[in-house]
């Protein structure tokens, strides 16, 4: 009786979620590929001129912003992810090895997780303000002259540094939370055993903590990569919809911005196909790096 298949009943329970998922998740995935191969699609009139394989991808690659978007996205990913993962790992290990004030530190460290990207992005923009911001003030204490991070005609390099500080700051909380819970799941006996065997602290960290935490590190790295490739709201938070310092508009454009740029021109012939093509390119890049990541981690992750 209990092993019976309850097909009809099961579908009744699944129906609400499945209807929504089919309309707003599965169908859009297929449709994105469909749109990306339409020639001169105009959605206002509902017309198109047959199919094309490369034309819409050509639009994406020839978009004057494409190279900037790709460069920015890759820099943001390959700089901020490793730095943030390492810092989070260290901080969570430190946090896990103290007793007093642990709760206080923990609460403070988790705060960035619950902030609004727009609000905190604006706060960071003002932190990096050339004349009135705290960052230049503090740098002044150690002898630096004020730097134009995000102000009028700030350079791409400075804006990028400021932005990386911001994204790293805001992404650490989640990683620390995950690492900390992972550390707390490691049996204390391994550390007792290591201690009896006179293991030095650094060796305990490298030979015991990191391997036993490797599934968590792997998970965080993958999700961080995926999340990082999708960076967009944070750019708006810090730089507004011009996506760059004033006078250097779109300097901080990202891959996702290409999708929304095209979507904003939705009435224009071919724009939606370009958006779909851009989304597929983004998906392709994400998938590629995820697979590379999995391949690299295969040998190093202990389950």
């Amino acid at each position: 009786m209990l092993e019976d298949k309850h097909n009809i009943k099961a579908w009744f329970y699944l129906a609400p979620a499945m209807v929504l998922l089919i309309i707003f998740t599965f169908y859009p995935i297929f449709n994105a590929f469909f749109l990306a191969f339409l020639r001169d699609f105009n959605y206002l009139q509902g017309t198109w001129e047959g199919f094309t394989f490369f034309e819409n991808f050509g639009f994406v690659f020839r978009n004057p912003n494409f190279r900037d978007a790709l460069t920015n996205t890759l820099i943001i990913t390959f700089v901020s992810v490793p730095i943030a993962v390492i810092i989070a790992l260290l901080v969570s290990v430190w946090l896990n090895s103290i007793v007093k004030f642990r709760g206080v530190f923990q609460t403070i460290f988790f705060l960035p997780y619950v902030t609004n990207a727009i609000a905190i992005g604006m706060a960071f923009a003002f932190l990096f303000n050339r004349n009135f911001g705290l960052v230049n003030t503090m740098l002044g204490w150690i002898g630096f002259s004020p730097i134009n991070w995000v102000g009028l005609r700030a350079t791409w390099g400075m804006a990028m540094i400021a932005f990386l500080v911001f994204t790293t700051w805001s992404s650490l909380a989640f990683r620390i939370m995950v690492f900390l819970s992972g550390l707390q799941n490691i049996d204390k006996q391994y550390y007792d055993a290591a201690r009896v065997d006179s293991t030095r602290r650094y060796r305990i960290f490298r030979r015991i903590t990191v391997p036993l935490l490797s599934p968590m590190i792997f998970y965080i790295t993958i999700t961080s990569f995926i999340g990082s490739f999708k960076t967009y709201t944070e750019v708006i938070g810090m730089f507004g919809e011009r996506l760059g310092p004033p006078g250097n508009d779109r300097a901080m454009i990202t891959m996702v911005a290409l999708v929304y740029d095209a979507l904003d021109r939705s009435g224009v012939t071919g724009a939606l196909s370009e958006a779909a093509a851009a989304a597929i390119v983004l998906f392709g890049i994400t998938l590629f790096f995820t697979l590379v990541n999995m391949q690299v981690s295969k040998k190093r992750v202990h389950y």
């Binding site: 006996q189 007792d192 009896v196 006179s198 391997p211 036993l212």
Partner: peptide, 21 residues
């Protein structure tokens, strides 16, 4: 004297073998 300097060998009840090694 801390455990690491006592020169003892300890076998734990559930062995505490490092699973990744």
């Amino acid at each position: 004297v801390p455990p690491e300097e006592r020169g003892i060998g300890l076998v734990f009840q559930n062995y505490a073998l490092y699973p990744h090694m």
